[in-house]
């Protein structure tokens, strides 16, 4: 039985009258890579900053290995390391100086600090940028400096807030490997992301939050199975509208989501239903440009759960 690394209990955070996170309950177990998934503004960062004791809960509490963020904030800070969504540095800061100081403050001696900083900077391809000033770095490089802090710290719980946003595709794959390695070395990793592909690639468990509320939680396959009808028939059709009559007939097969000229029907045994669907389109004189039957992706899960398209909102 794995122990709980982070336990979020009835956590609510308000900014003035606005509720950013609304009564969130979550358990994150030791040595998991846990994904917090949701479009921009859904409360991911607010939650992560509260775990890192930057914000205080308006009500409820969060426990890190049993220690309360409200009553034992210092103990929690010794267990948690965070890579912020927006890199935290002054413009004239140089990555090497920043990271060396960071290594010192998280507990390394000067000589060990120099060693680990070089090691991590080389791993992330940052070494050549070590003496540039922060404003000269690309967005992706700044994000890597942010991630480097956590890799140097090797905390019990690592919080990564959209770690690969602004990072190029090649580097993304390398970073995902680095993140998995961090987990293999014993760190519990919590990642906030709105990148479905990233979530599928690195996360073992996922919580979907939307507008401050938890909408679903589980492993990726659990979430996919949670869609009552297993498959998705995706149809791209000509024109911009579906006749009412066709829509009504299609709805008998399952729940429908539409988005510009793409229509998704959530069905069971998609490969059997697809012929009927094609037939219906033909009878209604709507031309099909493309049709396919697929297993639901995380994207589909998200669409199903929130009724919203993630990419559109983010």
């Amino acid at each position: 039985m794995k122990s709980k690394a982070v336990e979020i209990v009835n956590f609510t955070k308000k900014f003035g009258d606005f509720t950013a996170v609304d009564n969130l309950n979550l358990e994150i177990y030791e040595n998991e890579v846990f994904g917090l998934l949701g479009p921009n503004g859904s409360g991911k960062t607010t939650t992560l900053l509260t775990i890192a004791t930057v914000y205080k809960p308006t009500s409820g509490d969060i426990y890190v290995f049993g220690h309360s963020v409200t009553r034992e904030d210092y103990v929690v800070r010794k267990l948690v390391g965070i890579a912020f969504q927006e890199p935290k540095a002054m413009w004239i800061d140089k990555p090497y100086d920043l990271l060396t100081w960071h290594a010192r403050i998280v507990g390394y001696s000067m000589s060990d600090a120099k060693k680990i900083v070089r090691e991590v900077m080389e791993l992330l391809g940052l070494w050549e940028h070590r003496n540039k000033q922060f404003y000269q770095l690309s967005g992706g490089t700044r994000k890597k400096v942010e991630l480097a802090k956590v890799l140097i710290q090797k905390p019990r719980v690592a919080i990564l807030d959209e770690p690969t946003a602004q990072v190029d595709v090649l580097s993304k794959h390398a970073l995902w490997d680095v993140i998995k390695k961090l987990r293999d070395e014993g760190t519990t990793v919590i990642i906030a992301t709105n990148d479905m592909f990233e979530a599928e690639r690195v996360c073992e468990k996922i919580a979907i939050i939307y507008k401050g509320k938890l909408r679903a939680m589980g492993t990726i396959s659990e979430l996919k199975d949670s869609i009552p009808r297993g498959d998705v028939i995706e149809i791209q059709y000509e024109g911009s509208r579906i006749p009412e009559k066709l829509f009504a007939s299609l709805e008998e097969y399952g729940r429908i989501e539409t988005q510009s000229s793409t229509l998704r029907i959530y069905v069971e045994k998609g490969e059997e239903k697809v012929l009927d669907v094609i037939d219906l389109f033909r009878k209604n004189n709507v031309k099909i440009l493309r049709i396919m039957v697929k297993e639901p992706t995380l994207d589909d899960v998200f669409t199903y759960i929130t009724g919203a398209k993630l990419r559109e909102e983010s």
């Binding site: 900053l49 890192a52 800070r77 948690v80 912020f84 002054m90 403050i105």
Partner: peptide
């Protein structure tokens, strides 16, 4: 610039 968020997240009282 919210660099302060970084400072208060560090393992320091």
């Amino acid at each position: 610039r919210e660099v302060t968020q970084y400072l208060v997240s560090l393992p320091v009282t």
